[in-house]
């Protein structure tokens, strides 16, 4: 297979992978969308939705969807930092809520992966509703990196999307 220097098909591409696998299952139900990325971070958007309200008398987003948003952005930031898809399981995720999100506003989460070791990946991030300096929530998480079989390292974006939805998030893989 030929590779151009500008587009390595083996490299994890959060925008392309996001298009393919954010549309299904729980992330699809929430309506999560790719927003932006850098070398070691990924930002996703949680659009405003009436069904995600957390209180009966105020149009304020529940906190649960923010955990889902940050969990997804965490996984994608690990793959972005690692460069290829890597099977991971969430071990521990802590979210601190600074304030409710603005009424009828989308929420964005930007998560960076600041360290990957042989057995773990460490992430931290923020959630905001338009101004990253005025956070809605901050989070820290640790993911276990599951033993990667080199034969399973995916070679194309489509393979990555399939692999990502097949082995992302939620719980240890050894149960």
């Amino acid at each position: 297979m030929s590779e151009t220097p500008h587009s390595d098909p083996a490299r994890f591409d959060p925008e392309q992978v996001g298009k393919l696998f954010l549309g299904r299952a729980h992330p699809g139900w929430l309506g999560l969308k790719y927003s932006d990325h850098g070398d070691n971070w990924v930002e996703l958007e949680l659009p405003w939705s009436e069904k995600l309200l957390g209180e009966p008398d105020r149009p304020v987003l529940a906190s649960g969807p923010i955990v889902s948003l940050m969990d997804m952005a965490s996984g994608m930031s690990i793959w972005q930092t690692h460069g290829t898809f890597l099977p991971v399981a969430t071990l521990d995720l802590r979210v601190d809520y600074q304030r409710p999100a603005k009424e009828r506003s989308a929420v964005w989460s930007r998560v960076e992966c600041y360290r990957i070791t042989r057995s773990a990946a460490f992430v931290r991030g923020i959630a905001h509703d338009g101004d990253p300096d005025d956070t809605v929530a901050t989070m820290a998480g640790v993911f276990m990196t599951l033993s990667a079989d080199p034969r399973q390292i995916s070679r194309t974006v489509a393979d990555q999307a399939a692999a990502a939805s097949a082995a992302s998030e939620a719980g240890t893989g050894d149960a």
Binding site: D71, L93, E169
Partner: peptide, 16 residues
């Protein structure tokens, strides 16, 4: 499907 992450498993966010 509302709570699904990887196929046939709960998404960590839904569990949370």
């Amino acid at each position: 499907p509302n709570v699904e992450g990887r196929p046939q498993h709960y998404h960590g966010g839904a569990t949370a």
